[in-house]
């Protein structure tokens, strides 16, 4: 068949271009625009070049928020991934309980994020929340609105409750994709339970676990609503993660320039981390 050359065909792509322009390119460019200008009341702008970027990168406030962010992400990954795999291993492979388990597991994922924050806020209140009162009744002083450790404890517990299910579902999907013949062969070979996990289940789950880690890494880096509703970043700045800090700066203080610069740094960081992580994991796979 001859190739028809008709440049008017480009018009067919136009709707998509317009759509992408409005929901991605233009907002992003607005942020880029803000990040290099100083703004004053009455829509007066001055060009500032890279000043805001330098300021943000050198500010202690940003370093502290970034540190808290890494700590948070590190802790929840260290808990959610092994816990998710363990729960997936404990779930039944077939039978009527499979769907019951799956629905129970999916429930936390169906709850809107701000509701999750609200639920845990009330749940952990030392005065009348079930969790807060129980802990205090045990003789341990607990108040997540005042104590830094308690705030972190509640925040991490909330995230684990909300997101471990995602890891469970992904890991379970990976487990279900293993043909029965592998388990049969392992039985014949006299493999122990640990050997089955180490040499069959874990290697076969690797791909989905890569995705799980990647999703949790990005999501936890971008987390905003839940900690905002739960602690509002407090006590003090103890739980002010990157996104909360960003909003404080942009909305609370109307520092559009630094906030825009920080957004871009933040965006590039998430992008770079995901890319590095993905490259490392897939290269590992290609090599072995």
């Amino acid at each position: 068949m001859d190739k028809v050359v008709n440049n008017r065909a480009w018009f067919m792509v136009l709707p998509v271009l317009v759509l992408v322009a409005f929901n991605a390119v233009i907002p992003l460019m607005t942020v880029v625009n803000y990040s290099v200008q100083e703004s004053f009341a009455g829509n007066v702008f001055f060009f500032e070049g890279s000043k805001w970027f330098e300021q943000v990168l050198h500010s202690e406030r940003f370093h502290a928020a970034l540190g808290r962010q890494f700590l948070f992400t590190g802790i929840i990954l260290a808990i959610e991934i092994p816990l998710g795999v363990a729960i997936a291993l404990a779930m039944p492979r077939r039978g009527p309980w499979v769907s019951v388990c799956l629905v129970l597991m999916a429930l936390p994922l169906l709850i809107p994020w701000n509701v999750v924050g609200a639920i845990w806020n009330i749940f952990a209140l030392p005065s009348y929340g079930l969790l807060g009162r129980t802990i205090n009744a045990l003789g341990i002083s607990f108040n997540f609105t005042r104590d830094v450790f308690d705030a972190w404890f509640t925040l991490i517990l909330m995230d684990v409750w909300h997101w471990t299910s995602l890891v469970v579902l992904l890991a379970y999907a990976g487990l279900m994709a293993i043909p029965d013949a592998y388990y049969q062969a392992a039985k014949i070979d006299g493999a122990s339970r640990w050997a089955v996990f180490r040499y069959i289940q874990l290697p076969k789950m690797r791909r989905v676990l890569t995705i799980a880690v990647l999703l949790r890494l990005m999501d936890s880096f971008m987390i905003y609503t839940e900690p905002f509703v739960l602690t509002g970043g407090g006590p003090g700045n103890a739980t002010t993660l990157l996104s909360i800090d960003l909003v404080k700066m942009a909305q609370g203080q109307f520092d559009l320039g630094p906030a825009a610069a920080m957004s871009l740094i933040y965006f590039l960081m998430v992008l770079a981390m995901s890319w590095v992580f993905y490259t490392v994991m897939t290269r590992e796979e290609a090599r072995t």
Binding site: P179, A181, Y182, Q184, A185, Y199, I200, P203, K204, T288
Partner: peptide, 10 residues
């Protein structure tokens, strides 16, 4: 078995 079973990481 009918279909090959190998331990991938070994």
């Amino acid at each position: 078995f009918q279909f090959p079973v190998v331990y991938d990481t070994m």
